[in-house]
Structure formats: structure tokens, C-alpha cells
Computed example of a mutant assay.
Amino acid sequence: MTRDSIATVRWPRLMIVTLIALIGVGGFARLGIWQVARLHWKVDLIERVDARIHADPVPAPGPEAWPAITATSDEYRRVTLSGRFRNDETVLIYTPSDFGPADWVLTPLERDDGTVVMINRGVVPEELALAGRFDAAPEGEVMVTGLLRMSEDKGWLFSRRNDPANGKWYRRDIGSITRAKGFERAAPYFVDAELGDPKAWPRGGQTVVSFRNAHLSYALTWFALAVVVFGAWLLVLWTELRRR
């Protein structure tokens, strides 16, 4: 390369382009690394949840354990508990389902210690639910086995808000439901009952255990963008150094 060609390199322009390239490559690479970390977290979560739902049931947490319950450590754990259903306090919660518009049927289970746990007994097509054409919970002492679920305190972007005053519910916000019912010692979680009679309504065993895992594709996208920016910088550098 001659001295004249070197003199024609537009160094201020090249420095600006280099700075932008550094920011772009660094930023995209960091996002890619973050997605890789999220990938490992998601895989670990899926493995933990899969182990929980296939494990032998354990006693449902009592009042002394309620403050420490978290989604990370407890959700989707198979639990068992006994008590008496309070059918007169059943709550219907609207939900889309494989059967079309439907309702979850949540009935409180009162345990021997006086505490209450809301049991999601399953789903009923909305037409049957509104007409009351579904089975009441069994009378007397019963044993329930199912998956521990966390309260749905927050709705989705376009979800309708619960209307406790009029008894209309659109998400399983256990705190709101138990307060509206006046339950003083109610668990902060609910239990999705396992499938009983496959032809009965409500129909249990409808828990969807599915976690979207697209972190690998996201990571590859960010790394590819970093490579593209780096390649573009090399092209600009090559062009500038070849100027006459």
C-alpha cells in the first residue's frame, strides 16, 4: 500500500464505524450469552417439573409452610390432602378449553385443622356449567390427589378482570376468591385434581404442563447478528484501506 493510499483513508469515519461495530457486536453477543443461560435454566425447569408430576404424592403444605411456598420450589408438585368439600361455596371460572368455552370448577376443601384449600375439580363446558349440570363434589371425608398450582394473581394483557362483587371470575386468583368467600385460614395455592371418571363433569386431569423453549433459536439469532455486524465492519475497513 502506498503512502498516498494511506493518506486517503477517512480515519474519523472509520473510527465512528468501528465504535458502532464494537457496540453492536458486544451487545448482540451479550444477548446471545444471556439466551444460552436462559436455555440452561429452562431445561432445568422442565426436568424438575417432569420429575415432580411423576413423583409419588406428598402431603399438601400446611399453614406453617405457606409463607415459604414459591413457584420455583413447589409448583406442579403432586400432593395429597383430605377433608370435606363445601359444595355451597363452589366457584366457576371461565376458561377456553378443548371442549370450547368452559369453566373451571373450584370447590373449597375444609381440612380437619379448619384450613381451606381450593380444589380445581376440573373443567365443564360453559353451557353445562351455567345450567348447573355437573356433578357435585362427594359428601363426607374424601382424599384428593393432584398438582399444586400457584395463584393466578395477575391476568394476561387482554384478560378480563375478576368481579368478586357479582361472583364472576376469569382467572384463578386464590387470594381474591378466598377473601370474597370470607375464608380466614385459606391456603395461598390451589390443587388441580387428577382425572377421575373420564366421562364425568367436571373433568379433572386437565392441567397443561408445557413450557415454550425457543432460547436456542434466540441465541443463534443474536450471535448471527453479531457476526453480521463484524462482517460489515470488516467490509468497511477493507473498502477504506483500498481507497486511492
Score class of each variant (00 low, 15 high):
198 P>Q: 01
167 G>F: 00
45 L>H: 08
144 V>K: 06
173 D>P: 00
13 R>C: 11
47 E>K: 05
147 L>H: 07
101 P>V: 02
68 A>Y: 03
176 S>A: 15
104 W>I: 03
29 A>P: 10
119 I>F: 01
120 N>W: 09
234 L>V: 09
20 I>A: 15
38 R>E: 09
156 W>N: 12
231 G>D: 05
66 W>V: 02
23 I>A: 15
72 T>D: 15
114 G>N: 05
108 P>W: 00
200 A>P: 11
144 V>A: 04
203 R>S: 12
44 D>C: 06
42 K>A: 12
61 P>E: 05
117 V>W: 05
108 P>H: 00
222 W>V: 04
58 V>K: 06
8 T>K: 13
128 L>D: 13
182 G>M: 01
113 D>H: 03
23 I>L: 14
221 T>W: 07
241 L>Y: 14
173 D>W: 00
37 A>Y: 09
218 Y>P: 03
63 P>F: 03
48 R>T: 00
157 L>Y: 08
58 V>I: 08
241 L>D: 10
102 A>L: 04
217 S>F: 05
92 L>W: 01
170 Y>N: 14
175 G>W: 06
243 R>N: 10
8 T>N: 14
190 F>R: 01
169 W>C: 06
115 T>C: 10
167 G>Y: 05
223 F>W: 14
19 L>K: 03
166 N>G: 12
27 G>W: 02
103 D>L: 04
165 A>K: 10
114 G>F: 08
3 R>D: 13
84 R>P: 13
203 R>N: 15
95 T>E: 14
13 R>Y: 15
193 A>V: 07
14 L>Q: 11
41 W>S: 14
138 P>S: 06
182 G>P: 08
187 A>Y: 03
216 L>S: 04
238 W>R: 14
93 I>H: 07
113 D>N: 10
200 A>Y: 00
160 R>C: 11
46 I>K: 09
126 E>C: 08
171 R>K: 08
100 G>N: 00
210 S>R: 12
145 T>E: 15
210 S>P: 11
220 L>Q: 11
129 A>V: 07
52 R>H: 07
99 F>A: 14
87 N>S: 12
33 I>A: 13
230 F>H: 08
69 I>W: 06
210 S>A: 13
115 T>V: 01
105 V>Y: 06
35 Q>G: 04
179 R>N: 14
58 V>T: 11
177 I>N: 10
118 M>T: 00
226 A>I: 02
28 F>D: 06
119 I>T: 02
220 L>H: 03
157 L>S: 13
98 D>Q: 13
141 E>A: 12
57 P>H: 09
190 F>N: 07
102 A>H: 06
55 A>I: 01
57 P>M: 01
237 L>K: 09
238 W>F: 15
8 T>M: 11
26 G>M: 03
111 R>Y: 10
201 W>K: 06
54 H>W: 01
144 V>L: 07
227 V>H: 09
33 I>Y: 12
98 D>M: 08
73 S>T: 13
137 A>I: 08
78 R>I: 04
